[in-house]
């Protein structure tokens, strides 16, 4: 049974296919969040949290299910990059923002958990984890071998989600856990746009297709694109679409910071862990 999208030698068909693993993963995710919301204090689940849950779930679902998941897994390199952006740069931050603020504060009250959350909120951790995952999951030999199996493809999707959470955590971590002030968060997101230039450049400027998987994949009816052009578009999407998503995050942080400055409010992020109530 095909439970997760994976590369296949079969010709592409525009007929819907069911991937039970993707549905199960989304079901479990939504169930976990709804349980979290039910156990949260009354009024602590904002409309924004609910909106972020809906949008983040939809982005993740679109990325791992038919057709995007199946096309990206074995037919078109550029769709694979769209999956990456949907999972790491859209679903991950939205799902983090969907966690009720009270829950994060509550978790941070326990010293051990707070220590973990604080360690993960170090900007270097976010940059290293995300970019290591990005690099490893774009090595041709790994892509060509791992993506032929459902488990391998599931692993890549999961790694991208983990990488996205690591990338966005320093920006979304609650007060008392966060290490960066708003201007530093903006700077962090700006720096985050730089390392992906390396894999994007390899994809865009390689003389020949890097991945046998996409070079030898059956052509997709209605989406005729040469293997080399497919790879170039993939590299361009990584930068031309990926960077503006991070710029949007920077803009939101900037305007939120400016608003709090104008109102004379303290910045939302506090550096001192002492401000967190003892467990």
């Amino acid at each position: 049974m095909t439970w997760w999208c994976a590369a296949s030698d079969a010709a592409w068909q525009w007929t819907w296919r069911w991937y039970p693993g993707a549905w199960l993963a989304i079901g479990l995710l939504v169930f976990s969040y709804l349980r979290l919301y039910r156990n949260s204090e009354p009024g602590s689940v904002s409309t924004l949290s609910k909106f972020c849950l809906a949008a983040g779930t939809l982005a993740l679902w679109a990325a791992i299910d038919w057709p995007i998941g199946a096309l990206g897994a074995g037919y078109l390199s550029w769709v694979h990059t769209v999956q990456l952006l949907l999972i790491s740069l859209i679903a991950a931050p939205l799902l983090l923002l969907a966690i009720p603020r009270g829950c994060l504060d509550y978790w941070a009250e326990q010293p051990r958990r707070r220590a973990w959350m604080r360690a993960l909120s170090h900007p270097l951790v976010g940059l290293i984890v995300f970019n290591a995952i990005l690099g490893v999951t774009h090595v041709p030999s790994i892509v060509d071998s791992v993506m032929k199996t459902q488990l391998g493809n599931f692993g890549i999707d999961l790694l991208w989600l983990i990488g996205g959470i690591a990338l966005w955590w320093p920006v979304i971590a609650p007060p008392g856990v966060a290490r960066l002030s708003p201007p530093m968060q903006i700077g962090y997101l700006f720096v985050s746009t730089i390392p992906p230039t390396i894999p994007a450049a390899f994809l865009t400027f390689a003389k020949y297709p890097l991945y046998a998987l996409y070079e030898l994949a059956p052509r997709v009816p209605g989406m005729q694109i040469a293997a080399q052009a497919d790879q170039q578009v993939s590299g361009l999407i990584m930068k031309v679409v990926g960077d503006p998503i991070l710029w949007l995050g920077m803009a939101i942080l900037f305007f939120r910071w400016a608003r709090s400055e104008r109102a004379g409010l303290p910045a939302e992020t506090v550096r001192a862990p002492e401000s967190v109530p003892a467990a």
Partner: peptide, 18 residues
């Protein structure tokens, strides 16, 4: 041909350009 023929020919054609 849904798979082999167009891919084989397209790859050969792509190399010719270089």
């Amino acid at each position: 041909c849904p798979d082999v023929c167009p891919v084989h020919m397209a790859n050969l054609a792509a190399v010719r350009k270089d």
